[in-house]
Nucleic acid binder design. Sequence first.
DNA 1: TACATAGTGTTATATTATAACATTTAAATT
DNA 2: AATTTAAATGTTATAATATAACACTATGTA
Lengths: 129, 129
Amino acid sequence: MHTLSKNQQIIFDIIDKSPEPMKAYSILFNVQKKGIKAPLQVYRALDKLVEIGKIHKIESRNAFIACQNSSCQVSKATAFSICESCEKVTEINNSSLSKYLSNFKDKAGMKYSKYNLEFFGLCKKCITK
Amino acid sequence: MHTLSKNQQIIFDIIDKSPEPMKAYSILFNVQKKGIKAPLQVYRALDKLVEIGKIHKIESRNAFIACQNSSCQVSKATAFSICESCEKVTEINNSSLSKYLSNFKDKAGMKYSKYNLEFFGLCKKCITK
DNA sequence: TACATAGTGTTATATTATAACATTTAAATT
DNA sequence: AATTTAAATGTTATAATATAACACTATGTA
């Protein structure tokens, strides 16, 4: 198991506590009281946390969320649902889906080592508004 | 069928001719000789071209490619393979995959209106290097 | 014509991300 | 414990990506 460094722990904690994905400069603003002053300090921690699978980047939003999936050691197979109204993001943990995608081969026979899937729609709350 | 405006056509043409995804400022550089001088002129055309499905954004790369799929009118169901070595990107057109994903429902019962999937790996050329 | 909608041109600025280099800390090896 | 190595930190500067705001022009349609 990986032990986080000081900066990594600070930045993981704030992402983990957040109910929604956080952007890098919002993270920076929120950790300045803890002594983290520069964007690079944030980005380096983010890079490492993504690498070890503790957080994921929501590519379409340039934002980061803590991994919701206890069995997810590395960010090799990620899927998210994104509400286009309230921007709520949920990590999808569905074994049928992950099996289907992990075994997917395209016509050219290329075998993939990683995928990222983002679904967009309206969440239950927003659909009734 | 949609008629492209002058700027939209210029920008679509250069993306369509490119063998690889193009980034916004690379597009800008390449169309300055045609009188397009400012980032916004590029981004506005890109937004519209994405909206009508003539191009797609590769989110993990902040880059744009022309739609390879003649039946794809709108960018509601996109899938790409991305070589992490040479950065070659190919649009995946696989009816089993698109059916599976279009019909996918998560546990919360949320029904999605759109998805984007990016596979990562090594293409055939790069795998033998 | 006149009205509405979409597109253009422009300047300025916001947001996201990395380069480069010096230093410090932690971990692994002897 | 001392040495070595890898990982992490701190800092300044800057690159790369993207949007706000406003004035104006072209196009389609009643």
